[in-house]
């Protein structure tokens, strides 16, 4: 079933605050072979909180994760993520198109710190593969 057009412009509730620990950063850096400098996160680390926001969104619209393919991803950073940051992501649906039985969903997530200051904005295009594909 296609996703309803009324979703466009809708902002979903922020994710639960997530505290960035040194251990988590080391695990992420090790998994991607990045240099771990004990303070600053690798550039794609904010995807961990943005992904949590996407999971909440998919649950809300009753879409299975395995039907989602990542089409595009962009990050714009105000500052790097650091150990001790407490981050939340707030996802908004920007665009929605239906092409060939697939939903093409454009989302943006504002990743903010404990003070509510913007750390980075992530934009993701999600391709929801229809049942018949």
């Amino acid at each position: 079933m296609p996703i309803d057009q009324s979703l466009v412009g809708r902002e979903f509730p922020p994710t639960s605050p997530y505290e960035v620990s040194a251990g988590k950063l080391r695990e992420f850096a090790d998994a991607t072979g990045a240099t771990y400098d004990a303070e600053v996160a690798p550039p794609t680390f904010p995807i961990t909180v943005a992904f949590a926001a996407m999971n909440d969104f998919l649950a809300d619209v009753q879409v299975d994760l395995f039907r989602i393919v990542h089409g595009e991803q962009r990050f714009a950073y105000e500052r790097p993520v650091r150990v001790g940051d407490v981050l939340t992501a707030t996802l908004k649906v920007d665009t929605l198109r239906q092409i060939g039985g697939n939903d093409i969903i454009g989302t943006s997530s504002a990743v903010t710190d404990a003070d509510g200051a913007l750390v980075c904005t992530t934009r993701a295009t999600l391709i929801h593969r229809g049942e018949e594909s």
């Binding site: 991607t32 990045a34 240099t35 600053v40 595009e72 990050f75």
Partner: peptide, 24 residues
């Protein structure tokens, strides 16, 4: 993430990327 790793090495260290994006 692997691409970012190369970029950070070229840029001279962590924390220097201000924008990063691609299509899959």
């Amino acid at each position: 993430a692997l691409t970012a790793r190369a970029v950070e090495e070229w840029a001279g260290g962590p924390g220097r990327v201000v924008e990063f994006g691609c299509k899959f």
